[in-house]
């Protein structure tokens, strides 16, 4: 494999990293993503790292750089699916993903981008809970206002150093 596939989900680009990242591959992804953001006019990028069993400083820097480039191109970046062991290691390593927003899963990431309340859908008596189909939810609320609307934007993100 010499390229990581990028999927288009409406106005969101979805990257799911499924291989042990070589440095060259990581650089290539960075370039590919910038081109695709411009070509598609995407407003957000979701990077799913749930398959990664480590994130070292190089991959961490790649994620931060992608977020910075996206911001310049008027798109938001959400990194989703970081494993607990990876998160604990990153904290110990002293690495904070500067400027990167995070979410538990792709579904949570889409909700965050759409400004959909993160608990409301999950409330005990709310209709539509539990279908687990984040993509459907995202489509049905696709006409939401700006991506960072909603109260989540006010929540603290990973501390920057």
């Amino acid at each position: 494999m010499d390229q990581i596939p990028i999927f288009t989900l409406g106005e969101v680009l979805l990257v799911s990293i499924q291989v042990d990242l070589e440095d060259q591959l990581a650089m290539r992804l960075q370039e590919d993503l910038s081109e695709r953001i411009v070509a598609t006019g995407a407003r957000a990028v979701i990077i799913d790292i749930s398959a990664l069993d480590i994130v070292d400083s190089f991959i961490g820097r790649m994620l931060s750089t992608i977020a910075s480039i996206s911001r310049v191109l008027d798109a938001e970046t959400v990194v989703v699916g970081m494993r607990p062991a990876v998160a604990i290691t990153l904290v110990e390593l002293g690495l904070s993903l500067k400027g990167v927003r995070t979410a538990l899963t792709v579904e949570h990431g889409l909700r965050m981008l759409n400004g959909t309340p993160s608990l409301a859908l999950g409330g005990p008596r709310e209709a539509g809970y539990g279908d687990g189909d984040g993509y459907g939810d995202a489509d049905s609320t696709g006409d939401s206002p700006a991506p960072d609307a909603g109260s989540r934007a006010a929540l603290p993100r990973p501390v920057s150093d």
Binding site: D53, I54, F58, V86
Partner: peptide, 10 residues
């Protein structure tokens, strides 16, 4: 494991 592999990678 994760800590050691990450250190080895660095």
């Amino acid at each position: 494991q994760t800590k050691l592999v990450t250190a080895a990678s660095e």
